[in-house]
Design a binder for these strands. Sequence first.
DNA 1: ATATACATGTCGAGG
DNA 2: CCTCGACGTGTATAT
Lengths: 222, 222
Amino acid sequence: VRVLVCRCSIGYAGRLTTRLASGDRVVLFKEDGSVAVHALKGAKPINYMAGPTSVREDDDVIRIYRPASDETLTIVVEHVHHDQRHGLVDSAVLEREGQERELHEHLARAPHLIEAGLAVVERERLTDVGPVDLWCRDAAGRVTLVEVKRVRAVAAAVDQVVRYREQALRNESLGGVRALVVAPDFAPQARVMAAARDVECIVLDVPRLLAEAGPDDLTLFA
Amino acid sequence: VRVLVCRCSIGYAGRLTTRLASGDRVVLFKEDGSVAVHALKGAKPINYMAGPTSVREDDDVIRIYRPASDETLTIVVEHVHHDQRHGLVDSAVLEREGQERELHEHLARAPHLIEAGLAVVERERLTDVGPVDLWCRDAAGRVTLVEVKRVRAVAAAVDQVVRYREQALRNESLGGVRALVVAPDFAPQARVMAAARDVECIVLDVPRLLAEAGPDDLTLFA
DNA sequence: ATATACATGTCGAGG
DNA sequence: CCTCGACGTGTATAT
């Protein structure tokens, strides 16, 4: 990895065109050909290129080209504060825990958290318009489709479950099909949409429940 | 900005939990409190924290905490290859060309690209369920709502313009309101949705048109 | 501060 | 290979 700290101007041309006037930045060149330009603020690079790329350096102009997508990043170096290559080794991979998939599993084991009498028939049931998170039957035996959101639900989440319901109605010609969105919190527009489309909003912060109880104790809640 | 090149192990706990075993990485600490951890591959940080944060360093353990979202990034430093602070200055802002916003402006100047006789009444017209990209009237005088996508349109884009149409019908009690999606390309699901909901799909790659002609020559196309 | 939509989104799973 | 939805999404903009 090469770490270049410099004052520079940067241009990008590819999916769009960007221009960044002169200023100090930290530029990382990695062995896989990827490049990341960090400005002084923000967690994400202000400019970047995915590898593989070809890097050409003519004097004070560094030109990074990515043939696969015909993108070019051009860095005009005006002053070098620091420039060093590091021979580094890293074989570790990032391990994640606590994704939406797990959420479904926990809810599938404790559907009463959503509603008394609810029974999960199938998880991730595939339809023509996408997978339904939880395909259920309620206490009255009605088909009930549940879309689970780990974070705040927005209008799009309501649209999503409405699509599933339409498809379910078409393919199964069932009497009434209910549509639910389960989320820790709902955006105002989502509430409006849900009311308009007859979708039920269930406020339920499963990650927090899991944190407060043990992962195996979800059945304790009601 | 502090640039730390080191062998380290990293843990993140917040919206989920991640763990990264020992390896060499480049860590950037910025003045705004944000932190970016770069592994040896990939343009984007493998771990990161948005600012503002508090950073505490006890011996070989660096703990970054973000109160706003109760997230913690923990870096256990095993070996320091390089560690340096740089006093940097950068007041430039990234200028982008070709964003969706600009597309609206161009289309507003050349609405005939969408359809002959179309007239733009208002851009970014606000409704209770979101802003309508282009609020227009067609040659026959009918209200016509246009949703513009810079990239391939998916089902959600169709849902979006349908929301706007519903709202328009409710608030204005207009006769017939047309709904259009303009995009360089449409996903099959989007086509199906559009047909089912009576939404028209207009294939139009405005960025390419702009690239082929000059930005001021859009009116030449028909 | 909150709410909303964009993004060079990027990434991974499923058919 | 394509199609799709999730993402620790992050980030800017408008209310």
